[in-house]
Amino acid sequence: AQPDSSGLAEVLDRVLDKGVVVDVWARVSLVGIEILTVEARVVAASVDTFLHYAEEIAKIEQAELTAGAEAAPEA
């Protein structure tokens, strides 16, 4: 049998309840925000891996300038 990926209930279950979540302030403004907290759990190979990071983002501006040179031009 071939699996089917069109059922609305199956899609809603996944797209609404699961997947990467980014807090609104990290999405719309980095002004005044100095730390991104990242909590990750990967469930594969029957092993749960928990990762916790707190990344300082004060240097993002600088990194952005460097990365911007090789990134595609923005629309």
């Binding site: 990926s5 997947g19 979540v21 990967v42």
Partner: peptide, 28 residues
Amino acid sequence: TVRYTGPWPPYNFVDIHIGAEQAQQGGR
């Protein structure tokens, strides 16, 4: 009845939450 669905991106195997904190408010 067997319902067989997919292929999906691994929604049920990935759990990542990215938050933002202001350091002066007692960040880690």
